[in-house]
């Protein structure tokens, strides 16, 4: 479903990604882990072109999204993203956040969009917050709304950029639970995370990045019990 071929990304002189190649199958849940500065987030942000790859190609459903004539907006509609700091629209209600893009981008009627929005809010357990403003929500609630907002566009792929890193510890679980149930529905997911337990339990594959390179690509059982590289071993020792 997603194929990444020799992806390089520079920020000026700084080389962040140094030739990453991998693929993600439909329905697969991939955890992307690694030390800070390893390029995990940049890698994720290249998949919906929030960062423009310097060289290399990315295919989604066999379409080369790095090609000039590709409509980025069409790609992004199909690839949902959840950010570390939620980025809900503060001047809209929770439901307003959910229905904005489906109405504006997909041309849904308000009725359609609200119906789907309320269904999604029920799924993330926040039906009672539909008319609240984001400011009145806790961090965990905000992130669940952000997930629902991304799902409202009915994407085929969901990208998560450290979705629990900005949360108080007691709120991490509620967000991970939502993500877990999403994984069970067969959604294709790529998750940058520091939650090793979650990666181990939910992911089908772990990608370990270090210094802009893909160092390991293995099923979680294998990665967490017998990592091949020394750097992965060091990293796991510090994390666990």
């Amino acid at each position: 479903m997603i194929k990444i071929d020799q992806l390089y990304k520079d920020f000026g002189k700084l080389q962040v990604l140094k030739g990453i190649s991998t693929s993600i199958k439909e329905g697969e849940v991939v955890a992307i882990i690694g030390p800070s500065g390893s390029g995990k987030s940049t890698f994720l942000r290249c998949i919906n072109l929030l960062e423009k790859p310097t060289t290399g190609r990315i295919f989604i459903n066999n379409q080369d999204i790095t090609e000039k004539k590709t409509n980025i907006m069409d790609i992004r509609q199909n690839v949902g993203m959840v950010f570390q700091h939620f980025h809900l629209f503060p001047h809209m209600t929770v439901l307003g956040n959910l229905i904005y893009a489906p109405m504006k981008v997909k041309g849904q009627t308000k009725q359609e969009a609200e119906k789907l929005g309320l269904e999604l809010l029920a799924k993330v357990g926040l039906s009672d917050k539909a008319n609240e403003y984001p400011k009145r929500l806790s961090g965990g609630q905000k992130q669940r709304v952000a997930i629902a907002r991304a799902l409202a566009m009915q994407p085929e792929v969901m990208l998560f950029d450290e979705p629990t890193s900005a949360l108080d510890p007691e709120m991490v679980k509620e967000v991970l639970d939502v993500m877990k149930s999403l994984a069970h529905t067969g959604m294709t997911m790529a998750i940058v995370t520091h939650e090793m337990g979650f990666a181990r339990e939910v992911a089908d594959r772990v990608l370990f990045l270090d210094g802009g390179k893909l160092v390991e690509d293995a099923p979680p059982q294998e990665f967490f019990t017998k990592p091949k590289s020394g750097r992965a071993r060091d990293f796991l020792q510090k994390m666990l």
Partner: peptide
């Protein structure tokens, strides 16, 4: 916050809206 435009872009919202 730059995250606001990123969130909008990630949803496929064009520049004008």
């Amino acid at each position: 916050d730059k995250g606001q435009s990123e969130a909008a872009m990630a949803l496929g919202v064009p520049y004008r809206p």
